[in-house]
Each structure stands twice: as structure tokens, then as C-alpha cells.
Design a protein around this nucleic acid. Structure first.
Lengths: 215, 215
DNA sequence: AATTATTTTTAGACAAATCTAAAAATATAT
DNA sequence: ATATATTTTTAGATTTGTCTAAAAATAATT
């Protein structure tokens, strides 16, 4: 498999995970920042290899074979992210681009040894689950801050939207990866939260709470 | 730079290191297992980018820029080899192919953090020197077993010829990476050596001794 | 239901890296 | 020094992945 084929497979896998249905040509093109015509070309190639089921104008779904390969790429991506954060001490928001490259390294032995070296983690630094060597995925217990129970302690494991405006806001509020949250009150009218962030009381809007992942 | 350009640059660097003079089109083609015509095409491209000095029919040499880039690729290759052997416990003879892939990962920050993580090693598992981040190379103190002094202790760090016949011979003699050697006698007639291998007396021919690297 | 808008596919072109076969330059040998 | 052999380059073709522009299919709207 070429890098490009792997990237398409991964993208289809990710869109399927959130939508559940067939994936459209345009959806793939948009996510990969390429043209629909390029996508069509590649879909034919992937269909020939029996990695996807493709019917003209009807969108695609992954075959079992394609789904397994996609999971192996996701597995590699997330294991490398753990390596970069845990072992090389990269900030959590810098690892994605490097993992995008590392996920294409081909060696099953390498990835299984890396898995052991890292202590067989089940989640990456963003709280996303890491498929095991047979493709099994322990479902994530990652939540949005807007969904948590009152008076329970949670730890910040990531953001959904990583726009610079949002990251600046977090910086101002001294919220970072690993911060602890305890939601003390929820305003019924607009779902604004009164939260203890590292024992400091902060008011957090619903929009903000919808962009913070916790554990 | 593309993977292919990097591979050409690295090959030219390696051939230059051992020959010292201009590198011929055919020498490159042979080492890369490709056709001379493909090499010519790429040489033009590398010359356009001012990474090599290329004159038709006269062979090539690296420019300073090309030489530095080549060293950075070698640096990455050798650091990843150290990672694979020291941290993931790969056998020393399995790491080359994986490092060939990892050497193309693009991130200066990654490679410098990896360097620190590994304790800034100056040699890879085969005893070859690792260029530092500015391209400086500490000259190797790697020797052939045929060149060592009598009654001094050396450690096996690699082989020159890795044909399967030779590796089988080593296996039979229980010689492996890390074995200690003390040369007790040298036969003047044919340079056969009487060697203590891990305190066991073994007779080693000059041809064998010329293929074992020690420290 | 007919028209308009959107999505998707096709057709044809292009750049990168490779190849084969033939031509040109250089090296070797008689 | 002339003929032969080798090396290197050119010319033209191929594959992969991309693109633009136009055509075809599907979806949305009046």
C-alpha cells in the first residue's frame, strides 16, 4: 500500500466512525483537501483491491479487509503519539503532524515492540482509543465537559476545536492538558457551568464546555 | 525533498566517504539497484537544486549544502537504529530496513529530542559514527579483528560481509554481537589468529578476521 | 413535473520517478 | 591510432497521483 492509499483508507474510516453510513466522494475530498475527481480515481483503485465497496454515485463503505487495515494505521498513529508525548516529552498539540508521517512506517514487529515499550496503552494523549494488534478497540471513556456529572473530578485530556482563539482563551484561564475540573453548578437557562479548575472557581460557557474533552 | 532525492543524496555521500573522489553514474545505479538512465535524470534534478556539482560524463560531488543534508539523513538513520536496538530490543541485524524508512521522517525537533532521549550516542549499533546536529562526526574507533593488538580485549560490534554463509559460520562458532575477543597469537605465515572468544579458544582465519568489526 | 443546483464521474493533461532502446561520449585493447 | 567495449546520456514510454474542465447523474426547488 502506498502512503496515499493509506491516507484515503484512514480518512474513510474516520468519517464512517462518526457518520455510520456510506461516505460520499465530496466528504473525502473536503477532509483531505483535494479534488473530488482525484477521490473518484482513488476509490476505483481501492475498490479493485477490495478494500472498499464502491458503487458510482452511491458513496463507499470499507470492507472487513479495508477496515482492518485502517485500524492498523490508526493504531500506529496513536501509539506514535504516545511515544512522542510520554517518552520524548512533546507538548500534546505538536504530535499530530509527526504521527501523520510515522503512521506509514511498515513493520508489524516494530509496532508491536513499540506497543510493549509504551506499556500497551489503550488511549492516546488526546483520549482516543488505540486499537490492539487484532484491531479490537476498547471504547473510549472520553467525555465533553458539558456532559459530566456534578461534583465529580475529571481531568482535561484534550480539545475538540483547536483554533487559536480557543487556545488563547484556555491560556488566559490557565486551563491546560491535565487540569482538573469539578463542575459545582449548572445553570439551566443557558447551560453555563460553575467549575473548579485546579481548585479555582471559573465560569465556563456551554460553547467552551462543548470543546473540552475530559476523563 | 522527496524520499527519492534523499536516497540518492545518501548514496552519493556513502560512496564519496569510501572513495574520496567523484561518484560515477554507474556506481550510484549499482548501489541503488536502478538503471543508469534513471540516475542521470535525478542527477540533473539534484544539480538544479545545487545539492551536487554535476558535469556530464564526469561524475558528481556533493556541494556543502548537499553534504550537510546527506549527513542529516545519516544522523537520523543511525539514531533510529540506536532506538530500535537499545529501547525496543531489536536484534542488531534487523534494524537497517526499518531505519531506511524512519530516516525520511521530517522534523528537526523530533530528531533532536530522540537524540537526547537516547543519551546523545556517538555510534550506532554497528559501530558507525552518528553526526551531531551541526553535522560534526567523531571519527569511529571501529577496527577489523585482523587489525587489533595482541592480548587486548575487544568487543564484537558488527560484520562487514553479511552473507548467510558467513552468519551461519558465526552462529556455529557461537560468535555474536557483543562477544569479547582477545587475540592471543598471530600466525605470521597466513595471519591465522588464535582468539579467546568469551574465554573459549578458537582459531580464526584471516578472511574471517577481515569481516569482523570490533571495538 | 420541470427546472435549477449540486454532486460525481469522465476525459484529457501534467509532474515525478522510473524504464527500454538507441545514440553519443569516453575508455580500453589490439 | 583505430577498432572495440564500456559508460553515460538522450528520447520516448509508463505508472502513480494529481489537476481542470466538461459531461452525466442525482438532489432540491419552484
Amino acid at each position: 500500500m502506498t502512503f496515499s492509499e493509506e491516507n484515503y483508507l484512514k480518512t474513510i474510516y474516520h468519517i464512517t466512525s462518526s457518520s455510520g453510513t456510506e461516505v460520499s466522494t465530496n466528504a473525502i475530498a473536503e477532509k483531505m483537501e483535494t479534488k473530488a475527481s482525484s477521490v473518484t480515481d482513488m476509490l476505483k483503485k481501492l475498490a479493485d483491491k477490495e478494500l472498499i465497496v464502491y458503487q458510482k454515485y452511491k458513496g463507499v463503505i470499507l470492507t472487513d479487509k479495508g477496515s482492518h487495515l485502517a485500524k492498523m494505521i490508526v493504531r500506529k498513529h496513536r501509539l506514535w503519539e504516545v511515544f512522542l508525548v510520554d517518552k520524548l516529552h512533546f507538548p500534546w498539540d505538536e504530535v499530530h503532524d509527526i504521527a501523520e508521517q510515522l503512521e506509514h512506517i511498515k513493520s508489524e514487529k516494530l509496532i508491536n515492540k513499540l506497543d510493549d515499550f509504551l506499556g500497551n496503552p489503550t488511549e492516546d494523549p488526546h483520549g482516543d482509543p488505540i486499537p490492539d494488534s487484532s484491531g479490537l478497540i476498547k471504547k473510549s471513556n472520553k467525555l465533553l465537559l458539558s456532559e459530566v456529572e456534578l461534583n465529580k473530578e475529571y481531568r482535561c485530556i484534550g480539545v475538540k476545536d483547536s483554533s487559536s482563539d480557543f487556545l488563547k482563551y484556555l491560556d488566559k484561564q490557565k486551563i491546560s492538558l491535565g487540569s482538573t475540573f469539578v463542575v459545582k453548578e449548572r445553570e439551566n437557562f443557558d447551560d453555563t457551568l460553575l467549575v473548579e479548575v485546579n481548585s479555582r472557581k471559573v465560569t465556563i460557557s456551554n460553547k467552551i464546555a462543548n470543546n473540552l474533552f475530559v476523563h
